[in-house]
Computed example of a mutant assay.
Amino acid sequence: MLFINTRPQDRAESLSHALRMAHIDVLDLPLLELLAKPWSAPLSWLYEQLSTAEVIVVVSPTAVEIGMDYLKQSTFGLDDLRHIQWIAVGEKTAETLARYGIKASVPLVETSEGMLQLPVLDGLHAGTVIAFWRGEGGRVFMMDQLKQQGMKILNFILYLRQCPLLTTQNFAQTAALLQQHKNYVMVLSSEASWLNWLQLLQNFPTLIAKGHYLLLGERLYQIVLNYKKSQGSCFNIARLTDLKTESILQQIAIVQGNT
Rank of each mutant, 00 (worst) to 15 (best):
N170W: 07
I130C: 09
A63L: 06
Q73K: 00
L165K: 15
Y47W: 05
G90D: 07
N170H: 09
Y159L: 07
W86P: 11
G123T: 14
L166S: 12
T167P: 04
E136I: 12
I130T: 12
K152V: 03
H125L: 13
F76A: 05
A63C: 06
S44Q: 14
Y159K: 09
W133C: 01
L116E: 12
R134Q: 11
A98F: 01
D144F: 13
T75V: 11
D69T: 08
K103F: 10
M68W: 07
S44R: 13
L118A: 15
G114I: 01
A104G: 08
T52S: 12
R161A: 00
E54Q: 15
G90L: 06
L124W: 06
D80V: 06
L166D: 10
G137I: 01
M143T: 05
V59M: 12
G114Q: 02
G123V: 13
S51K: 12
E113T: 09
F132S: 00
P42M: 04
T93P: 02
V120M: 02
F132G: 00
L146E: 01
Y70W: 05
S74C: 11
L165M: 15
V89Q: 00
L154H: 14
S44I: 08
Q117T: 13
S74M: 12
Q162I: 11
E65S: 12
L160Y: 06
Q73I: 00
K92T: 04
A126N: 09
E110L: 05
V129C: 14
L116T: 10
Q85E: 14
R134F: 06
P107T: 02
I102A: 13
F132D: 00
R134H: 09
I87G: 08
G67F: 04
I157C: 04
F132Q: 01
F132E: 00
L108W: 08
N170Y: 08
N155Y: 01
S105M: 01
G77V: 12
I153T: 08
I66V: 07
G101Y: 11
E110I: 10
D79I: 09
L97V: 07
T128M: 08
W45S: 02
